[in-house]
């Protein structure tokens, strides 16, 4: 089964990963441009805390720089990043025992005040519902629904089978739907 995290082998390091390993600024910027926003939002939805999400996402890329030479297939770069991001998020949630979770913040640059209020309510509702999803259902939901990842990609990121992804996603969707029902019927 594909684990999602590259296995050590003797093949030469792909050029982009080699440059990353060597700390090449342009390569890092390229990878961040490609994966950074998605990873940040994934982590944000996982932990529900904007500041923590930024820190954790930064940690993911920091780890990438020191472990780039462990990823022998560039196609697995995204999988590796999500896998690390997920682990970081779960560890963060575990370590955050009593701290009050920050409320989700409004999305950037709303055009009108009433739109801003509506978006804020929606963001809060979504985050509350996500908070109500247990692991690994939350990860599955965020990856497949919010990040629109394929089952295969999600399976790699979570080190599980495609069948497991499908099963988890169904349950996650069902639960999320239930948790979102008050918002969907009251607000919309």
């Amino acid at each position: 089964m594909e684990t999602g995290v590259a296995q050590q082998d003797v093949t030469p390091l792909p050029e982009r990963l080699a440059r990353l390993r060597d700390g090449d600024a342009d390569s890092l910027r390229g990878v961040i441009d490609e994966f950074g926003p998605k990873l940040l939002n994934f982590v944000y939805r996982m932990v529900g805390d904007r500041s923590a999400a930024e820190d954790l996402t930064q940690e993911v890329f920091v780890k990438l720089l020191s472990h780039a030479d462990e990823i022998r297939d560039e196609r697995l770069l995204g999988t590796w990043l999500y896998s690390v991001a997920r682990n970081h998020s779960i560890n963060h949630l575990r370590s955050r025992k009593t701290a009050q979770r920050n409320r989700p913040e409004p999305p950037a640059e709303p055009s009108r005040p009433d739109e801003a209020a509506g978006r804020r309510e929606l963001a809060e509702a979504v985050q509350r519902a996500l908070d109500g999803l247990e692991e690994p259902f939350r990860t599955t939901f965020v990856l497949c629904v919010m990040q629109e990842m394929s089952y295969e990609e999600a399976a790699q990121a979570m080190s599980c089978s495609v069948k497991t992804v499908s099963s988890r996603l169904f349950r996650a969707r069902d639960k999320f739907r239930e948790l979102m029902r008050p918002y969907l019927y009251e607000v919309r």
Partner: peptide, 20 residues
């Protein structure tokens, strides 16, 4: 479908300046 759409519409964060 509606709850999925709500999740996708919930807004996205942008990377902070100077992230790299």
């Amino acid at each position: 479908r509606r709850s999925d759409a709500a999740a996708r519409e919930a807004g996205a964060m942008a990377l902070p300046a100077g992230f790299a």
